[in-house]
Simulated assay, not measured.
Amino acid sequence: MYIKRILLAIVLVGLVIAGVFAYLIYDALLTPNTSFENKEEVVFIPTNTSFAELIPILRPLLVDIDNFALVARQKKYDQRVRGGKYVLKNGMSNNDIVNTLRSNNIPVNVSFNNQETVEKLAGRIASQIEADSLSILKSITEKSFLETNGFNLETALSMYIPNSYEFFWNTSANNFRDRMLKEYKTFWNKERLDNAKEVGLSPKEVIALAAIVQKETAKVDERPRVAGLYLNRLKSNMLLQADPTVIYAIKKESGNYDTIIKRVLYKDLELKSPYNTYKYSGLPPGPITMPDISSIDAVLRPENHEYYYMVVNVKDFGYHMFAKSLTQHNRNKEQYIRWINEQKIMR
Rank of each mutant, 00 (worst) to 15 (best):
M1C: 08
I3G: 06
K4W: 09
R5T: 13
I6N: 07
I6M: 12
L7Q: 11
A9C: 14
V11C: 10
V11E: 07
G14Y: 14
V16A: 15
I17W: 07
A18M: 07
A18L: 12
Y23V: 11
F36L: 12
F44R: 08
P46Q: 11
N48E: 12
N48Y: 06
E53V: 07
E53D: 14
I57Q: 10
R59K: 14
L61M: 13
L62P: 01
V63M: 07
D66H: 08
F68Q: 02
L70C: 03
L70S: 04
Q74P: 00
K76S: 07
K76I: 03
R80Q: 14
V81K: 03
L88M: 09
M92K: 02
T100L: 11
P107K: 09
V110S: 01
S111R: 15
F112A: 07
N113E: 11
N114T: 14
Q115V: 13
L121M: 11
R124V: 15
R124M: 13
R124D: 12
A131Q: 06
L134W: 08
I136Y: 11
I136S: 10
I140M: 06
I140R: 07
I140P: 04
S144H: 13
L146F: 00
E147P: 00
T148N: 06
A156S: 10
S158Y: 09
M159S: 05
E166A: 11
N170C: 08
T171D: 05
A173D: 02
A173F: 02
N174D: 11
R179F: 10
M180K: 04
K182R: 13
Y184A: 09
K185T: 13
T186V: 14
T186E: 10
W188L: 08
N189P: 02
N189S: 10
K190F: 09
L193V: 13
L193Y: 09
D194V: 09
D194C: 00
N195C: 05
A196I: 07
V199W: 04
V199K: 07
P203M: 13
I207R: 01
A208G: 03
A208M: 11
I212V: 15
V213T: 04
E216P: 01
A218Y: 08
E222W: 01
E222H: 02
R225F: 00
Y230F: 15
K235L: 04
S236R: 15
Q241T: 01
D243R: 00
V246I: 09
Y248I: 06
K251H: 12
E253G: 03
L269F: 09
S273K: 08
S273R: 08
N276M: 12
Y280E: 02
Y280G: 06
P285Y: 09
P285H: 10
P287F: 14
M290V: 06
P291I: 10
I296S: 03
A298S: 10
R301M: 06
E303I: 03
E306D: 15
V312A: 10
V314S: 00
V314I: 15
F317K: 12
S325D: 10
L326F: 12
N332S: 03
Q335E: 14
I340D: 01
I340F: 03
N341D: 15
I345Y: 05
